[in-house]
């Protein structure tokens, strides 16, 4: 049985300017120990998908309109707050993009780090602190015994992200959701953090959902990748297939618009136009107005996410019909 199965998730934001369909019918599953990448541009709904699972969508204006998220037999979207608390922060943890704003600047690292332990386990403060020191050492912070009493501002950005990771992993979760954890960091520090996530994953055997807009990061880290566009999954496959045989026109266009280190072309391929406004109803395929292959029926028929080959799903009518 899968560790996490999400079915028909729809999260809308009801604002004065209309209803934003941030996530509009997302289905996926995740096995134990697996690494799943979710790739998409800003506004594609990749973060909101994970926020919905974690119960972090502010309601109102947000509302989960439909769907289930079964985590080991418990529906995270419809369980009691008590059941959710037993899972969130213990069996499922999350790290965020900006380690500057996700740590409390008024509290010492020690207090923030051991909080999940004090909440979820029957443990004395002294033992919790010992575990905290071990956790900091595990993420590569030297002199943990002293530095655990520092405040967040005494750490650099990369170090803060290490503290965040230590905090997320201190309860030995089965699933870690990482929302763009390296976007705010320099490349050399990004490389350190990616190595660390890989190492911790192997040690703890946990599953990871890795949200990013950087296809490069995904290629070395993930087993499987999902590409999102305008609140929906447009393609999902194992990493090699998605990189070497992408099917959906959006995924293909995304690949071609990266200024790769391997090739120096004169002109970069560009996707014309902009992502659609998800507060307006979208007829047919959301990508059709920007798609070089779009046919008349793409603007009329809503393309389903269908299995193209075992394990490879994609949502393009023309690919499904074998035309492109």
């Amino acid at each position: 049985m899968s560790l996490l199965t999400v079915k028909d998730l729809r999260t809308y934001f009801h604002t004065r300017n209309g209803v934003y369909r941030a996530v509009d019918g997302v289905d996926f599953h995740l096995e134990r120990g697996e690494t799943l990448g979710i790739v998409g541009e800003s506004g594609s709904g990749k973060s909101v998908t994970c926020y919905s699972i974690m119960g972090l969508v502010p309601q109102p204006p947000g509302r989960i309109e439909s769907g289930t998220a079964m985590f080991d037999g418990v529906d995270l979207l419809h369980c009691t707050p008590r059941e959710a608390r037993a899972i969130r922060g213990k069996r499922v943890s999350m790290i965020f993009q900006d380690p500057m704003t996700s740590l409390n600047p008024y509290l010492r690292i020690s207090e923030q780090l051991i909080e999940p332990l004090l909440i979820h386990e029957k443990i004395s403060k002294a033992d919790a602190l010992q575990r905290g020191r071990e956790a900091l050492e595990a993420v590569g912070i030297n002199d943990a015994a002293r530095r655990i009493h520092y405040y967040p501002h005494e750490f650099s950005g990369g170090m803060r992200q290490r503290v965040m990771i230590a905090m997320a992993l201190i309860t030995k979760p089965e699933l870690l959701i990482a929302d763009e954890p390296t976007t705010a960091l320099d490349v050399t520090v990004q490389a350190q953090i990616l190595e660390l996530i890989k190492k911790m994953q192997q040690e703890l055997g946990m599953a990871v959902i890795f949200i990013t807009h950087d296809l490069g990061v995904v290629s070395g880290l993930c087993d499987r990748v999902m590409v999102m566009y305008a609140g929906r999954i447009v393609e999902s496959a194992d990493t090699r297939t998605l990189f070497y045989q992408p099917k959906h026109p959006y995924t293909r266009a995304l690949h071609r618009s990266i200024p790769s280190l391997q090739a120096k072309g004169r002109e970069l391929f560009t996707i014309p136009g902009m992502p659609p406004d998800v507060s307006k109803p979208i007829a047919g395929c959301a990508f059709a107005p920007r798609c070089e292959f779009a046919a008349d029926r793409c603007l009329l028929t809503d393309p389903p996410l269908a299995e193209w080959q075992p394990g490879h799903r994609q949502a393009c009518l023309r690919v499904q019909a074998g035309e492109i």
Binding site: L194, D214, G216, S219, I258, L261
Partner: peptide
């Protein structure tokens, strides 16, 4: 240069990376 992740899974998994 070695720290930049490339959108090429095979290369990414085999190459030697210098992590500073």
């Amino acid at each position: 240069v070695s720290a930049i992740p490339t959108p090429n899974p095979d290369l990414e998994r085999t190459r030697q990376r210098i992590v500073l």
